[in-house]
Amino acid sequence: MTGILSGLISPKADWAWRVAFLLGAIAAPIGIVLLTGAPVPLQADLPAWTIVAGGLLVGLGVSYGGGCTSGHGVCGMARLSPRSIVATAIFLSTTFATVFVVRHLLGGF
């Protein structure tokens, strides 16, 4: 996912398929709402600063780490790439640790 997006941030000649992919992904919940008539469940009962800080860290992290859940966690793991296996083990661990610290040591935000 971030590989497709980052190709738009440093524009390359092959932007059309990237934009088409992203628009297709964004259209999915709209189509589901139109088909089922029910809203898509989305609960983000968090202070805005955690979403901003989370976004900044994710943006920095995926740029240096070279991938996210879909890139390393699914595609790279499926190719048995050593880089992706290491990256996935690390980000699953730090996500778990962050949730533990926030919810159980700090009492949640």
Binding site: G61, V62, L92, T98
Partner: peptide
């Protein structure tokens, strides 16, 4: 870093 952001 990505994991910390995902967890936040």
């Amino acid at each position: 870093l990505f994991g910390i952001g995902w967890g936040l």
